[in-house]
């Protein structure tokens, strides 16, 4: 186990900057989720840590060891691939034992360790199966066991669950988290699924075009998205763009008939984006009291959708925008309603 420190990592492919001056620290025993859309450089980052991509510049430290130019086989990282990458000609036992054989362990040690690893991933008794005889979830567990059995200093998971169906994905996600905590292993978890990243990670790093857009604890990053991209990527149900307005009180933006502050760098008639999440808005039929804590927006219900546990309403504002808002009761269409939103839950960029 070791702390991972990355400084100024840059990698270009022709014109494309896959990694652009990436700084990243993952403390010993922590799980960092690298989140980003496809092409954001997350795979390049993890492959650079594993040694399959040679960076143009920058440094990678594992503990006190500079591994930037170390060969992959000497890094003591263990990677789990999206495609599992189990070797089809080897049994489960042989797949897991491969790394141990390279470490010149005795057959008894190998047998013991393989057994330990298979119990760890809850697959005892499958030693003699071939990978093709396993389900996708089982294959991914074997891949995990193969990676963990060599006691790596860092575990690299490259979209490990994206080839599995939703139910298994959900289950395995928590198992990985538990395992990681139990073994106290520094882990990098690549994903494009924001929910997965938020639920599993100690810290989330958002990448876009090879650059770190924001990094921090899941709660922080979710409740204080640094910019429009981050907010959008972390699942904003409502993104409204309008123009800034000016009156004697200064610059402002208007939504639901309410005056909203705009960032300091805006000028009159600049584009401004307002972001709010459907589940963070309170919908009421009676006008709430004015407060310093929340904004009150006006609107009219124009459409509704039943989601099972609640309804999702489409609300149109006097400015002509439409917002999606969740509520637990069925309301009459076209009724006039008020939306209460906590001041720190309305993001303005």
């Amino acid at each position: 186990m070791a702390t991972l420190r990355i400084k100024g990592l840059t990698k270009t492919y022709g014109q494309l900057k896959a990694l652009d001056n990436v700084d990243l620290t993952v403390e010993e025993g922590k799980l960092a989720a690298i989140l980003g859309p496809s092409g954001s450089g997350k795979s390049t980052l993890v492959r650079a840590i594993a040694g399959f991509v040679v960076p143009d510049c920058g440094e990678i430290f594992l503990g006190e060891r500079d591994i930037t130019h170390e060969r992959p086989e000497h890094r003591n990282t263990a990677m789990v691939f999206q495609s599992y990458a189990l070797w089809p000609h080897m049994t489960v036992y042989q797949n897991i034992a491969f790394g141990l054989k390279l470490k010149k362990k005795t057959p008894e040690e190998i047998a013991k360790k393989v057994k330990w690893a298979l119990e760890l991933v809850d697959l005892p008794g499958l030693e003699e199966r071939l990978p093709t005889q396993l389900s996708g979830g089982q294959q991914q567990r074997v891949a995990l066991a193969r990676a963990l059995v060599v006691d790596p200093e860092i575990l690299l998971l490259d979209e490990p669950l994206s080839n599995l169906d939703a139910k298994i994905r959900y289950k395995l996600r928590f198992e990985i988290k538990k395992l990681q905590k139990r073994l106290n292993i520094t882990t990098i978890y690549i994903t494009h699924d924001q929910e997965e990243a938020l639920s599993i990670a100690d810290s989330v790093v958002l990448l876009k075009d090879g650059r770190v857009m924001q990094a921090g604890a899941p709660q922080d990053i979710y409740s204080r998205p640094g910019d429009l991209f981050v907010a959008e990527f972390l699942g904003a149900s409502n993104i409204v763009t309008g123009k800034t307005l000016r009156d004697e009180g200064g610059l402002y933006a208007s939504l639901g008939g309410t005056r909203l502050p705009v960032p300091d760098d805006k000028k009159e008639n600049d584009e401004v984006s307002l972001i709010l999440r459907a589940d963070e808005v309170e919908l009421t039929t009676e006008k709430p009291a004015e407060s310093e804590d929340y904004y009150v927006l006006k609107g009219i219900l124009c459409d509704q959708m039943y989601l099972g546990s609640r309804w999702r309403y489409e609300v149109s504002t006097p400015e002509g925008h439409s917002l999606l808002v969740d509520h637990d009761r069925n309301l009459a269409a076209h009724s006039e309603i008020y939306l209460c939103i906590s001041r720190d839950r309305l993001y303005i960029y």
Partner: peptide, 26 residues
């Protein structure tokens, strides 16, 4: 697939062994 080879290198195999024990049998 690259990932099959990279998995071997990642676990400490050199290229020769990766060819001999992974690529050639596959």
């Amino acid at each position: 697939p690259d990932s099959c080879i990279e998995a071997a290198l990642n676990l400490g195999s050199n290229k020769f062994r990766a060819i001999w024990q992974i690529v050639l049998p596959i």
